[in-house]
Design a protein around this nucleic acid. Structure first.
Lengths: 213, 213
DNA sequence: TAGATTGTTAATCGATTAACAATC
DNA sequence: TAGATTGTTAATCGATTAACAATC
């Protein structure tokens, strides 16, 4: 356990975690890699290997104790100690994210939103919205390391540069374009266009198939 | 051009497209794979190979005519003819997606939203919100093939089953869990948890590094 | 012609899958 | 013991990168 884990493994871990949590009231307190794989439609060898990366609680014939496995994955993903984040661009999407309660489970805590026109924005759950001018002092003061970008594409790189000046090390961007960042800063693009591309091409293939019959 | 394209290539295409569109007023009407690669921080061989999959307009020494390339990628991704979709679960996220104007560019058109309590929901841009009871007749009537799921995890599989009964072939889900679907139907999970996992692990590594110094 | 760029063919790398030994 | 399951080692597969020939 605790070896170097590739990005592909990393991306599968939350899926396991979600499933493990969803069956917490099951009969047995144990679950095998095989059972997990079947439930998620994945290869059992892959699941077993992935689990071996983050846990060492597996026992032949029995499987993994569910609670321990959940704890191991959460610890590995850093969900056990919360990450503070700020969000820039309090439009509809920004508001949706700020109000989403599920992030607690992932150890994410959005402290505040920032916007060019904070006075017109209101967040249902009472989280504050500040003017962009206050970004740097807030980030430094609260030692914030993660920034969420939900501004239009035109403003994204600009906002990104600001975040970097504020000491942000991880950026979660919902703007469709590429962002230029220095080394040591990680950007993850929540790329809706990518998802649509995959689905769109699938539908095209489907329709072509149908026609040919 | 028009060969079988792997998923990894598919996922990169929207990135190229976005960049190409963002520089439409550049001096030259041509762009080389090298230039694209540099702008996006990618390997130039990879970009060239990707482009070769969808276009045949590249000319040595000159590069690709930008407009043609854009058209080729859009055609390949099926962005040129619009896909009609419906959305289920008109909460904050659902509303944000229904109001997002950028989807036009990807050929996606969200016709309507469906909800268990449509009377309490209102969409800014006037798109209709219907009761779930009307889902099947609407989908059949409008020959809708794509469904977007923005309901809480507990309801997701249920809604998913409904969509399949309505003849939906592509599902874009924002619920965090795994969805069970029959063959021929594609699910794409917009998995926020995955993104967070990648960023979270990066931050952990960063902090560990800092401590060690 | 020389140089930049394309597209293809071969080599490398990494991730997935298969085979198998270990263990409860 | 027999069978299920783990974890590891080897084989396969696919995707990326490197090398090179073709072309404007």
């Amino acid at each position: 356990m605790e070896k170097k884990v590739s990005k592909s493994v990393l991306k599968r871990l939350p899926t396991y975690l979600a499933h493990l949590k969803s069956i917490q009231d099951a009969e047995s307190p144990y679950i095998s890699a095989t059972a997990l794989a079947n439930a998620l439609g994945m290869g059992e060898v892959q699941v077993r290997k992935d689990l071996a990366m983050v846990s060492d609680g597996g026992r032949p014939k029995i499987g993994y104790p569910r609670e321990t496995l959940i704890a191991d994955i959460e610890q590995f993903l850093g969900y056990d100690n919360t990450t503070d984040a700020i969000l820039i661009g309090v439009g509809k999407l920004g508001q949706a994210l700020m109000c989403y309660k599920g992030f607690d489970e992932y150890g994410l805590n959005i402290l505040a939103g920032f916007d060019r026109h904070p006075e017109t924005k209101h967040i249902d759950n009472g989280k504050p919205v500040y003017h962009l001018d206050q970004l740097e002092s807030f980030c430094r003061g609260h030692k914030v390391l993660m920034g969420i970008i939900t501004v239009p594409q035109e403003a994204a790189q600009n906002v990104c540069d600001m975040l970097i000046r504020c000491g942000i090390k991880a950026i979660w961007s919902f703007a469709p374009g590429h962002l230029e960042v220095p080394e040591g800063v990680m950007v993850h693009n929540e790329n809706m266009a990518t998802s649509l591309a995959v689905l769109s091409v699938h539908l095209q293939a489907q329709m072509r198939e149908k026609k040919e019959k």
